[in-house]
Design a protein around this nucleic acid. Structure first.
Length: 151
DNA sequence: TAGGCCATCTGGTCCT
DNA sequence: AGGACCAGATGGCCTA
């Protein structure tokens, strides 16, 4: 862990050369400015920590709604984003496909034998669905080794 | 032990 | 001026 670097505090001291209104002011002002600068830095650090914690909370929520395919460890942030992208694209494809079929019943009969809500949220102990299920593979083309930058 | 992932600190930039 | 956001640097932890 990095400890407090003094560059900003130094600059506070430097800028203090303009403050020469009275005898003891230089010393007093510089220490006050350093104190204020340090306080601001600490406050900024705390804000940044909170911001990153909020970001991580969002990632955790995303992990919960994105398929895990039986991954034994949680997806990294990058993997989570890639998975979310693939998932959204798969769902979009399903919707587009559904629109092509004239009746809902026809579409459901096509898909329902394969589609179970549970299979999208494999628990770590469970067997990967994509590895053995050709339907899942066709529907949902994500594979951790095949990340591509989306553009 | 190297590499991947992550948390934190930090300084810069932009916005209100 | 101060807050939000971002990217770079750094060090810790974990796994193969």
């Amino acid at each position: 862990m990095k400890t407090c670097q003094s560059s900003q505090l130094d600059s506070a001291v430097e800028s203090d050369t303009a403050c020469r209104s009275g005898g003891g002011c230089v010393v007093k002002c510089s220490s006050e400015r350093m104190e204020n600068a340090a306080k601001r830095r600490l406050a900024a650090n705390a804000r940044e920590r909170r911001r990153m914690q909020g970001l991580n909370t969002a990632f955790d929520r995303l992990r919960k709604v994105v398929p895990q395919w039986g991954q034994d460890k949680k997806l990294s942030k990058y993997e989570t984003l890639q998975m979310a992208l693939s998932y959204i694209m798969a769902l979009t494809r399903i919707l587009a496909e559904a629109e092509r079929y004239s009746t809902e019943r026809e579409w459901i009969s096509l898909h329902c034998e394969h589609f179970h809500a549970d299979s999208f949220h494999q628990r770590p102990a469970q067997k990967p669905a994509a590895s053995g299920d050709p339907y899942a593979q066709r529907l949902f083309g994500y594979h951790p080794e095949h990340f591509q930058i989306a553009n």
